[in-house]
Design a binder for these strands. Structure first.
Length: 239
DNA sequence: GCGACAG
DNA sequence: ATCTTGTCGC
């Protein structure tokens, strides 16, 4: 990864598309070999009509799903929101937050899609192509593909496909609540992404990594947390 | 031309 | 993404 790949100022949709096709070629979707001890959630928050982005990555213990550390970065985005090109708007800030971490997570769950994307390079795959850490996407809405509604019972799922190609899974994380869309980003298989997401389901609709990341970046945006990398102590009282 | 369209 | 209050009941 170099800085050129992170400066998305003044690039056109056509150039962005070409960049996606190139990055897509570098993806690896072999099954994860290493044991997962920590998993992080990555998300951004911003004020309406503002181009100031509050990005954050929150690391959790994979077994207890409790926060262990977090990295927060404030930066200005240089790309508008265009469906299919979300990464060009949010990834630079997420990479900054990642580089700031002195202790890296084993896997990162990103708020958005992985390969469930028109060119198989959603934000989770894009981020995973830039950093050398396995990533998966967890989106709240479908961007691409077709699926049958999974049953209303928690943990039920159904394949998300484009024609005959499997892209990921639609997963019910809570009874009678809208499902989430899971797909691998980089360095993970499609099945890995589903299993990891299922493991991270707690009491709420969003899996814990994504839910915590969302919570932390909002506290950051509203001035209740400060920029930087912090490791939580057992003595830390959160809220 | 028409519908779909992550955050 | 963010802004918002109440309402419904698997």
């Amino acid at each position: 990864m170099n800085n050129k790949q992170l400066d998305y100022t003044n690039i056109t949709i056509s150039e962005a598309t070409a960049m996606q096709k190139e990055l897509q070629n570098s993806l690896v979707h072999s099954p994860l070999e290493q044991e997962i001890k920590t998993i992080a959630g990555a998300d951004i928050s911003l004020n309406r009509f503002s181009d100031i982005i509050y990005a954050g990555i929150v690391t959790l213990d994979f077994n207890t799903l409790k926060p262990l550390a977090y990295s927060l970065v404030k930066s200005k985005t240089s790309f508008p929101y265009v469906p299919g090109f979300l990464a060009f708007r949010e990834v630079p800030a997420l990479v900054e937050a990642f580089l700031q971490m002195t202790v890296k997570p084993d896997v990162i769950m990103v708020d958005g899609h992985g390969i469930a994307h028109p060119r198989r390079l959603g934000i989770a795959a894009h981020l995973g192509a830039l950093i050398n850490i396995p990533t998966l996407g967890c989106a709240k809405k479908k961007l691409y593909g077709n699926f049958e509604e999974p049953s209303a019972v928690k943990y039920s799922f159904s394949p998300l496909k484009h024609k005959e190609e499997l892209l990921g899974y639609v997963l019910r994380t809570k009874n009678y609540v809208k499902p989430v869309y899971i797909s691998p980003g980089n360095h993970l298989s499609i099945e890995d992404s589903l299993h990891i997401a299922m493991h991270c389901i707690g009491t709420y609709r969003l899996p814990e990594p994504t839910r915590k990341a969302h919570e932390f970046v909002n506290l950051f945006r509203t001035g209740q947390l400060k920029e930087g990398f912090f490791q939580l102590t057992t003595n830390d009282t959160l809220f």
